[in-house]
Structures are given as C-alpha cells and as structure tokens.
Design a protein around this nucleic acid. Sequence first.
DNA 1: CTTATATACTTGAGATCGCAAGGATCATAG
DNA 2: CTATGATCCTTGCGATCTCAAGTATATAAG
Lengths: 147, 147
Amino acid sequence: MPDTAWLRFLRAHAAITRELSSRLEALHELTLSDFDVLVQLYYAEGRRMRRIDLARSVLLTASGITRLLDGLESAGLVAKDRCDSDARVTYAVLTKAGVKKIEDARESHLADIEELFGSQFSPDEREQLAELLGRLPLAHTAEPCSK
Amino acid sequence: MPDTAWLRFLRAHAAITRELSSRLEALHELTLSDFDVLVQLYYAEGRRMRRIDLARSVLLTASGITRLLDGLESAGLVAKDRCDSDARVTYAVLTKAGVKKIEDARESHLADIEELFGSQFSPDEREQLAELLGRLPLAHTAEPCSK
DNA sequence: CTTATATACTTGAGATCGCAAGGATCATAG
DNA sequence: CTATGATCCTTGCGATCTCAAGTATATAAG
C-alpha cells in the first residue's frame, strides 16, 4: 500500500470527527459543521456573512448551508438579514443567543480538539503539520476554460 | 484561531474527498468507502474477511458495513460466505468481478490521490506526515471500566 | 428595452452513515 | 441443561450532505 499518509489521513479524520461530533452533540447540541459555521460568524465583521461566503469558507455547498442555517435559525442562534444593495444575497447574522452559544461551547470543544488532535504533537510539529496541510488544495476553484 | 492545523485538516479532508469521490464515481461507479473496502479485501488472505473486521479496518460501524456490502453484493463485486465454526460471522469475499473492478480502478484512483494529496509533498515530507498522522487516535477502542 | 449570462438561494430526490434496538449464536458458569 | 452475558449482524429511523433543477435578481451586450 503506497499511500500510507493518505490512508492515515482518512482514518484519523473518521475517528476524530466521530468522537468530536458526539461530544459536541452531547454537551451543546451542535454538529461539527454547526460549530464551524458559528465560529466563522463569530469572527466575522459585524458577526454577519453572506451565506455564499459562509458556504465557501466551511466548504459546504450552497444547499448544504441553506439547510444547516435553517437548523440554526430555528434554534434561534442565527438570523437572516437582507442586503439592500443586492436583493439576491441574504446575510446570516449571529444572534445574542448565538454568541452565547459559541462562547459556551468553545472551551470544551477546543479542549476536545486538543485532546484528540493537538496533544499528539509538540509545538514545532504542530507548526509543521499546519504548514504541510496548508498546501493541500481546498478549492476545485475554477474549471479550466474549455475554450 | 488557535487550532490552525486542525482546521486545515478538516478543510483539506472535505475538499479532497469531495473531488476524489466524484472522480471515482464518474469513472468506476464506486464510493470512496466502496473502494476502501474492496482494497482491504483485495489484500486480505483469501480475499475474504469477517464483516466485523472489515468494519473496524475502514472505521465504519457494523451497520455501515452491512449496507455498504449490500450495495457491493448487488453489484456482484462481493459475496457472502458463512463461517463453519461460528454461525454468527459472515465473511465478505471478493468475487472475480470484484477483483477485476479493483484492478481497473486502482490505477486512476491512486493517480488522483497522488495528484490531490501526495504530490504536494517531497518523499521526506510524506514520511513525516505519515508519522505525524499515525499518532492520531483511531479507535475509541475501549471504554475505561467504570468499575 | 430586450436578451443572455452569471450569481444567490431554495427545494426535491437520493445517498451515506450513525445510533438504538432486536435477533441469532456462542461461551461460560452454575 | 439453563441462565447470563458477549459478539455478530441486520433493520428502522433520523440526520447530514450533494446534485440537479428551479426561482429571483443582477449585469452586460445588442
């Protein structure tokens, strides 16, 4: 088996996200993706983002974001906001409850990540790992023009 | 954001598996998990494994394996085989068609992995990456005894 | 203005997967 | 032999996510 690194990457992802998800779900009733989205919003200017940008930043499809935000909206963590200059776009805004939620959940979740992932590495190794992983392609950004 | 390595890990996984899946699907009508299972069987002794061991090796749950193998069976790539010494266990065996399938699919899939993943790294870096990833926990193996 | 194209978002359908529960079989101890 | 508990597997259910298609809006070109 030549692609050892890839296989370990795959397996580690499956194992860690499974565990992380179940803890996050149990303690805060959030999905990994939910958390991811909330954090993105938390750090965004005005705690709001266009849905499409949100989708790109967490690597979900547009429809994925729609349904995920549906859930967060009905939980009251996020609200919609229309855009004056462009009626096509909708903003997702963190509500007060959303801010509280993320601040509540952050600590335990970061601790879980540290336990299952970070703690396996020394500071140098973390940096190196981040650098290596940072080279991987994130976007199948643009199809090369066929013409 | 403190957990850079983790975030990159997450995003890279999403992006790469998405692309890898879609190529594998288009060319060979296989899921990433399908391929994974077929490869495990391909390298197993007698090209057969107990379903439960298969599940553990690809990190799926028992029910996940059942349904995945259902698909591969109806595609004729895998067959069931009973175990004489223990009526609880069922083996999954690669059929002739399954062997052919995996031999057909291997080349292009490995090339895709190389393109999207491996090619980002030098030989040394691959080894290092494999080592680092190898430290990550795979099994929530055993609950610590509560007693 | 009209047409064409691109973008933002939603929706219906389908696939994958985990969890919980249940059935069957095995191993062990009384 | 029977009872208990573990293991292997399957099934019902629900959740998540993608793809394809459709709607609405914006932008650009004729």
